Computed example of a mutant assay.
Amino acid sequence: MITVYGYSSSGNCHKLKLLLTQLEREFKWVEVDSTAGQTRTPEYLARNPNGKVPMIELEDGRVLTESNAIMCWLAEGTPYWAGDAWQRAQVLSWLFFEQYSHEPYIAVARFIRGWTPLDSPRRASLPQLRERGHQALAVMEQHLKSQPWFSGEAYGIADIALFAYTGVAGDGGFDLEAYPAIRQWLERVKQTPRFIEMPGPSVEAVSRLAVPD
């Protein structure tokens, strides 16, 4: 049994829920609201000193963190991360792209708009985040003009990683109208077997906003 500690509205956490569901792997989900400080408790930090979600724990007590590393481990030996060393390295390159060039802008813009009050000073960074996010989307659009997937010839973990926050980019103020290849890819992902949607901010998270958004 795999125990997943995650925040359901987080794309990094939803990646694991989606992959495990599509792999038809049994797992236990433990909801950890990182926006309410639940990743900073002594009990959680004892398992993950970095104080972030997601995290998985095996029955023997072993712990693994970082969403894309967890996906690689889960997908090992499955069609979701297939091919020779070169093909698998291509998948890894998209996973690194997602964490370095995509998630820091598209996901952060979503968080600021959905989890911070209108008078938050963090909102001043939204124009720059959108500029950098659109740069990442342009790279994805260029790839998808000639390739249907990011994981090689078929859907896999690179697609799951990039879908998580691209699928809710509108929450961060990103208009995908100028990216027809991305929009078609998003629809292809949604048509994969056992696909599940990611929920938006919880009622509790919204209620913590000093000023409603």
Rank of each mutant, 00 (worst) to 15 (best):
R110Y: 05
F195Q: 15
V30S: 00
V211T: 14
R130N: 10
W86D: 14
L209E: 11
E26V: 02
P199F: 01
I160G: 08
L118Y: 03
S101E: 14
Y80P: 13
T192F: 01
Q147F: 03
N68Q: 05
E24D: 14
W115Q: 14
A154F: 00
L18K: 10
R132V: 06
A178M: 13
S10R: 07
A85C: 05
Q87P: 08
K145Y: 05
D119T: 11
I106R: 11
A181I: 12
C72E: 15
A82W: 10
R132K: 02
E131A: 02
R25Q: 15
E187N: 03
E131S: 09
N12W: 06
L74I: 07
G6V: 09
N50F: 04
V53N: 10
H134R: 06
A210Q: 12
P79D: 11
M71L: 07
L18Q: 13
P121A: 03
L209G: 08
E76R: 10
R194M: 10
V206M: 13
Q147D: 09
E26A: 08
E204N: 00
E204S: 08
L19I: 05
G173E: 15
F111V: 14
H134L: 01
L186P: 11
P127K: 06
L186I: 11
D119C: 07
N50K: 06
A178L: 10
V168L: 06
Y80I: 09
T78D: 12
V63W: 07
I182S: 01
L74Y: 13
V168E: 13
C13Q: 11
P121E: 12
A136K: 13
G156T: 12
D33Y: 07
L18V: 10
D119G: 08
I112S: 03
Y105I: 09
G200D: 15
Y5V: 06
T3F: 00
M71G: 01
Q142M: 02
V4F: 04
Y100L: 09
P49E: 05
D33L: 01
Y7D: 15
D175I: 07
V203F: 05
P180Y: 00
E26T: 09
T65A: 01
E103D: 04
G167R: 03
N12T: 10
W81P: 12
L144S: 02
V91I: 13
S202K: 10
E177I: 00
E141G: 04
G83L: 04
N48D: 06
E177A: 06
G83S: 00
G133T: 10
R123V: 06
G37Y: 07
Q38T: 02
S151H: 08
G61V: 10
I182H: 06
E66M: 02
K15H: 10
V63T: 14
T78R: 04
A164I: 12
L20F: 04
L23F: 00
A158E: 14
W73N: 09
E59Q: 09
S207V: 00
I182Y: 09
K52A: 01
P42M: 01
